[in-house]
C-alpha cells in the first residue's frame, strides 16, 4: 500500500490474539447490538423452527421439541462487518448437522428466514460438519431478545450478519439467492479472513 495516514500510530494488538483477528477488525469486550428494525416479540408458545423448500418432506419443531434436541456448548470468536470482533463467546444450541439430518435434500444452498422478515443466504457446505448452530443460550443465560433470542443462527466463520437473529427456519434452495444485506450491497459469502464485506470485495 502507498498511502500513509499522517501522524497515525494506532494501537497494536495484544500479544497472543494477533492470529485470531481478521484484517480491518478490532477486538471489543462489549456485545454491540445491530439490527435494521424493532426487536420482534414472539411468544415461545407459538415459536416453531422449520426446514422447508427443496426437501422431500418439510420438518418443523415446537419450542419444547427443539429444546429436547441434543445440544452443545460452543466457544467461538465472532466478527461483525461493522469492524468489531469478540473473542471466546460461549453459546448453547443445536448443531445444524442434527437439524439437517431430519430432512432429505439434494440442493446446495439455503436461505435462513426470521421474525421481522430478515433473510440471509448460505451454502449448505458452510453450515454442515460442525460449522453452524441454532443457539438459544449465551454465556450460560437464555439468549436476550436484542441479541436474537429466543434463537439465532450461529455461523462464526462468516461475518456475523450471516448469524441471523430471531431465526425461524431454513429454506433449502437450488440456487444461491441473496438475502437482506446481500441485496443491499453486502457480500454474498462474507468471509472475514478475505475481508469480503461488500459486493466485489
Amino acid at each position: 500500500m502507498s498511502f500513509i495516514s499522517r501522524g497515525f500510530k494506532g494501537r497494536r494488538r495484544q500479544e497472543g490474539i494477533s492470529g485470531r483477528v481478521p484484517p480491518g477488525q478490532y477486538v471489543t469486550e462489549d456485545f454491540p447490538v445491530l439490527s435494521a428494525g424493532p426487536t420482534p416479540q414472539t411468544p415461545l408458545s407459538t415459536w416453531t423452527f422449520t426446514i422447508n423448500g427443496e426437501v422431500d418432506a418439510p420438518k418443523s419443531w415446537t419450542w419444547e421439541e427443539f429444546r429436547a434436541l441434543p445440544n452443545e456448548t460452543i466457544t467461538k470468536d465472532i466478527h461483525c462487518v461493522t469492524k468489531w470482533s469478540k473473542l471466546d463467546t460461549v453459546w448453547q444450541g443445536v448443531s445444524l448437522d442434527v437439524l439437517l439430518s431430519e430432512v432429505d435434500f439434494g440442493v446446495d444452498y439455503l436461505t435462513a428466514y426470521c421474525d421481522g422478515g430478515y433473510t440471509t443466504n448460505l451454502p449448505i457446505e458452510d453450515v454442515t460438519d460442525g460449522k453452524a448452530w441454532v443457539v438459544y443460550g449465551f454465556d450460560g443465560q437464555p439468549l436476550a431478545p436484542e441479541h436474537g433470542g429466543p434463537a439465532r443462527l450461529l455461523v462464526p466463520h462468516l461475518y456475523f450478519w450471516k448469524s441471523a437473529k430471531w431465526v425461524r427456519g431454513l429454506e433449502l434452495t437450488r440456487d444461491d439467492t441473496p438475502g437482506f444485506w446481500e441485496s443491499l450491497g453486502y457480500h454474498d459469502y462474507g468471509d472475514p479472513w478475505r475481508e469480503q464485506r461488500y459486493q466485489g470485495d
Binding site: 462489549d30 454491540p32 435494521a36 436484542e146
Partner: peptide
C-alpha cells in the same frame, strides 16, 4: 434505540416503517 422502537411498535406503528441504526458504546 431498543426502548424507542419497542414503544413505537406498542403505540401501533407498523414495525415495517420503523428503521433503526445503533451507535454502541464500543468502537473507537
Amino acid at each position: 434505540v431498543e426502548a424507542v422502537a419497542t414503544t413505537l411498535t406498542e403505540l401501533g406503528h407498523d414495525p415495517a416503517r420503523v428503521k433503526t441504526e445503533r451507535f454502541g458504546p464500543s468502537g473507537g
